[in-house]
Design a protein around this nucleic acid. Structure first.
Lengths: 249, 249
DNA sequence: GTGACGCAAAGTGTCGACACTTTTTTGGTG
DNA sequence: CACCAAAAAAGTGTCGACACTTTGCGTCAC
């Protein structure tokens, strides 16, 4: 690990935080695979630190749901089954539809401008990664407009799990289908319309449908280019999730 | 230390978990006051252990939102302002209305029986504490019927924050008003009706209204028997919360 | 009396060590 | 060659120690 630039006013847990960032992105991006073991001494050596900060980092990753403690005490990267994907999406809808609802209640024209900019950048994005990053950034922006810090914090954790899941859904799919992009951008316009119109209920509903819709497209596209053996989620639970989506209306 | 009923079987971190249980109940029940400092060496001495498990316990309490890290590194019991109460309730509604929605989709007659039992016990409760514990237990039971573990875990954290907030709202109020009890029990009957009828949307809506309604009663009752100086939430945000409640319909 | 200075106390972040447990390897046996 | 036992290796949980930072307090000059 790069010798930390010290003396920066980080709230607490300096080394641990840096380690968390690295490991989290490793897990989300699939550099470390689900089921893989995370041993404290090994990581300590990798990062050139003692076990203490590594241990704290691992606790934080467990909090985020990216890692799982076994009864023996060992730690593994969490594996994802179909049920997990359903849970993640349901939870994301719960948090994000409430986020959109609250955001709509005190939305301003400046916020509209910012979101329009996000959408424009997304339309101009050249790589899938750029598109995806902008998507997340925009959802985060809207969540923060809710003004509810707790909601944002919980959403962050679910979001990371969602990103991790997407990595495995998309693992064998080289390019994001152009249609998915169009679908996503269209969804964003609809969401923005409800926010700008300060219609909380509509915002919550449209956001739910946008989330479930995007996922359905992703999974559909992926299963057409068949994914990794058995590990990736299939479409079985989508009907249930769609019900949950119509949910928050 | 009094072994608290630990519902989420955390396989790891033994000493830390016991310490978490004790400190959490101390904070929720007001034995340790908001703003009070939690120093690792002091707690280590109190529990007769070294700093390591204490440190992990404190991290867990921060995860639960009961404790806050300052920029200096010190830890204090989180203080609650009016805004915090609004955030907690909004988040609880987001999670619990989704929980009720999901629970309704696979509700069985056995579940109905169990909830009826909860309500009966609540009607028979003699002390406020008993009433309150049964209330929480029932909400937890319904959340678990959602079948979504992630939702339940996030809800647990918010629930502890909610309990902590209630302690401060009710601090000076000796008895739970009988009307509040009646209101609460009536709400539970309504919720059960939607669950038993397997009406997900109605369940979500009724649950939201039940939560916001209970809070409104609590705060009203409390402000009539005036609460501690300035620290307890006032009614300013209730209108906004009520909007958020109608929300999840 | 009051305010600045500086020293002592308290606290956090990190480290290495040790005991105990689980997993893996090894080596002997049928 | 398969199989079990025992030893070795790897890993976790907890401890005490130390450096550095922040806080608290007493002292001294004015």
């Amino acid at each position: 690990m790069t010798p930390m630039t010290q003396n920066l006013p980080h709230p607490r847990r300096n080394l641990a935080n840096e380690i968390v960032s690295v490991l989290r992105s490793d897990i989300i991006s699939g550099v470390i695979n689900p089921g893989e073991a995370l041993a404290e001494p090994v990581l300590a050596k990798r990062f050139g630190v003692s076990r203490a900060p590594v241990r704290e980092a691992i606790i934080e990753l467990e909090r985020a749901g990216l890692v799982q403690f076994e009864t023996t005490g060992r730690t593994r990267v969490r594996t994802l089954e179909e049920k997990d994907l359903a849970e993640i999406v349901e939870t994301r809808i719960a948090l994000e539809s409430m986020g959109a609802r609250l955001a709509a209640t005190h939305w301003t024209p400046e916020h509209t401008l910012r979101v329009q900019q996000f959408i424009a950048e997304q339309e101009a994005a050249t790589t899938d990664e750029e598109f995806s990053l902008l998507d997340i950034a925009m959802h985060e922006y809207i969540m923060k407009r809710s003004g509810n810090e707790r909601l944002v914090v919980l959403w962050q954790y679910i979001r990371w799990q969602f990103e991790m899941a997407l990595t495995y859904i998309h693992r064998l799919q080289i390019n994001t289908a152009h249609d998915l992009r169009r679908f996503t951008v269209a969804g964003h316009w609809k969401v923005l319309e409800t926010l700008a119109g300060r219609k909380p209920e509509a915002a919550a509903k449209v956001m739910s449908q946008h989330i479930i819709g995007s996922l359905e497209w992703s999974v559909t596209e992926t299963t057409e280019h068949p994914p990794a053996a058995g590990s990736a989620p299939r479409r079985g639970n989508l009907a249930k999730m769609k019900r949950a989506s119509r949910a928050s209306s």
